[in-house]
Structure formats: C-alpha cells, structure tokens
C-alpha cells in the first residue's frame, strides 16, 4: 500500500503497520481528511438515538461493536416502533475498501450511505433536514462541527463526512489469521487444514486479506417468498443481476450471526453445509465459482469453520475508540 497517498491521521501507527501489505483503500481520503475531532464527531453521531424520528434508536442499535457492528441474533433488523426490515444488518468492517454498500450495492459512495438508515421507514424514519436542524440547534454539536470542519453550522456534506470519518476507521486487521500471516502466532493443524480448504474453495470470492469482493453473486439460496428479494436486480434492472447479492467480508464471522442476506442461517455449520452439500449446481443463476463441486467431509467442514474462527479480531471488537463515547 502506498501510504503517501493516505491521510496521515487515519488509524493508529500499529494499525497502519498491520495493513501495510493490503491493497489501497477505495475511499478517497483527500476529499475528507481525517482528524481526531472529525472521528469523535462521527462517533458521537453514530451512538446518538436523537437521529431517529422518535429519538429511540441510534446506528449502534443495529450495528453493535462486540458483534462486528452487526445486529446479532436478528435475521432482519427492526427500526423505530419495532418496524422490521427485509435484510440482515451488514457488519461494518473495513468499509474504506468497499466500492459500494448494502446487500444490493445500491449505495455507490460511503459518504451517502448514512442517508438511508436516517430516512428509511423501517429504520430511523427521519429526514436529513431534521437531523441537520437537531445538530445545528445543539450547542455540543455546534462546537464539535466547528472543531472538525471549521464551521459550527452543519451541512449535509459535513454531517455525512463526519460519519465517514468514524466508519472508515473501523478497521479489523489483528485477528489470529493476521497474526499468523505476520508470523506472530501459530495455527493448529485443524486451522491449517481449514486455511488450505478455504484457499481451495472460498478465497476466489472471499479474497484475503479483506475476505470479500466488491462484486455481487448468486450463492444459490432459493428466494424467500416472504421477502421476494431480487437483490442487485432491483438496482440495475438487468436480468443477469437477478438474485445477486454482495459478497460480504468474512472477518469476525464467528460473531456476526445469523448469516446470509436475510439471516436465514443461524450457525456457521449451516452455511458451510449449504455450500458443500445443499447447493443445486444446475441453478442457472449460480455464481461461476460455485458451479464445481465442493466436496467436504464432516471433519473438513469442521476444519473450515475452525479456520473461519481465526478471523475473529478481539482488538477490533473491544477497541474502546469504537465504543460508546463518554
């Protein structure tokens, strides 16, 4: 990675060392230079329930740090007044490397992502304008915006860039896997075998070190008729995108259950079993990478899961800089 191109205030020195060999981030920090004040402002906004119309939920309600910033135990999340959405809340991990957002990739830039949860009927059901009125009428925020952006009057631009200063900083790069790659710890035989299987069967889509792809694919899940969610097709109206969903990161996957775009699987073993045993390979929509057999014995499935658990990053999950601000 070319650090000269990066914002000097992005991440701690140890985090920067950890991502030294990673690809360059997609996010353009030149258009939103990170500052401590900006990061702290974004953090304050992220944890503020006043952003929702009835002042009951914050971003953190569906994105809890200890579970990789997703909504643990909820197949789909609920917003204000218990309104339910139709998709599993995505984990917020290494977003600076994502070129689009949401399960269908409908959001094309991190800076405009936060408008969705703020305005979505089943999430905060508020308006961007109301949120601006709220922060501009609040002395603490006025001071925070002044320190972060040199103007106490928040605009759509500074509000949303403040969110990005926080969310781009949610970097997970210190899992057991990362430590193993850096030669700091060893893997058990089971984890080593899991890594070998992962490289054979999974890495083409969930590509290390980010364990995702900025692409969409059909993983062969039959459509859930309760939601009739056509995925990427809703965005592009191209038949070939039907039933395609984002290829998400697998970092911290041990803690981000339930799984898949609609949270239909509660256990990692159900996910692995889906790919190894249950997939209909003749499904015409199926992603190319999944068309060949993925034969795994019961023990191999366990080994693969043991490897996936090495992607848990406790430094990330318990980093106090990411938690509720005091």
């Amino acid at each position: 990675m070319s650090f000269s191109a990066l914002d000097e205030n992005w991440l701690s020195p140890s985090q920067r060392a950890q991502i030294d060999s990673w690809p360059d981030p997609v996010y353009n920090f030149a258009e939103n230079p990170i500052s401590e004040d900006g990061f702290q402002l974004g953090r304050k906004l992220f944890y503020d329930p006043m952003l929702s119309r009835d002042q009951t939920i914050s971003c953190a309600n569906c994105h809890l740090q200890y579970t990789g910033f997703t909504h643990v135990d909820h197949a789909v999340s609920h917003g204000i007044e218990g309104r339910k959405g139709t998709r599993n809340s995505p984990a917020l991990i290494n977003l600076a490397w994502n070129s689009s957002f949401h399960w269908d990739g409908g959001v094309n830039h991190l800076d405009v992502q936060a408008i969705n949860p703020i305005e979505h009927f089943a999430e905060m059901d508020n308006t961007l304008e109301n949120v601006l009125n709220y922060v501009n009428g609040n002395p603490e925020y006025r001071s925070a915006f002044f320190h972060a952006f040199g103007d106490s009057m928040a605009t759509s631009k500074t509000l949303l860039k403040a969110f990005s200063q926080f969310t781009t900083s949610l970097v997970s790069s210190d899992s057991k896997y990362d430590q193993y790659i850096r030669g700091e710890v060893g893997f058990t035989e089971q984890e080593k075998n899991g890594l070998r299987l992962f490289d054979n069967f999974c890495n083409r889509c969930h590509t290390a070190p980010l364990f995702n792809s900025n692409r969409y694919a059909s993983n062969g899940l039959p459509i859930d008729t309760m939601y009739n969610d056509v995925g990427r097709y809703a965005i592009t109206k191209q038949g070939s995108d039907s039933l395609q969903f984002r290829i998400p990161t697998l970092r911290n996957i041990e803690h981000t259950y339930p799984y898949m775009h609609d949270g239909r699987f509660r256990k990692l073993r159900e996910v692995v079993k889906h790919y190894a045993e249950e997939l209909d390979r003749s499904n015409p929509y199926l992603s190319e990478e999944l068309k060949s057999e993925m034969k795994l014995s019961e023990n191999e499935q366990k080994d693969l899961i043991a490897f996936l658990c090495t992607l848990t990053d406790r430094t990330f999950l318990y980093n106090r800089r990411y938690s509720f601000p005091n």
């Binding site: 258009e31 959001v107 830039h109 991190l110 800076d111 405009v112 408008i115 969705n116 305005e119 979505h120 308006t127 961007l128 304008e129 601006l132 605009t155 759509s156 631009k157 949303l160 860039k161």
Partner: peptide, 16 residues
C-alpha cells in the same frame, strides 16, 4: 458522494 448547492440531497432530488 455528497455534494452541496443545488446538488444537496436535502433538495429532495436524491435517491438514497
């Protein structure tokens, strides 16, 4: 990403 002036999303001419 986020733009201002007439292109500010609060103008009501933006799909999020």
């Amino acid at each position: 990403g986020i733009l201002d002036g007439d292109l500010d999303p609060i103008k009501g001419m933006y799909w999020s």
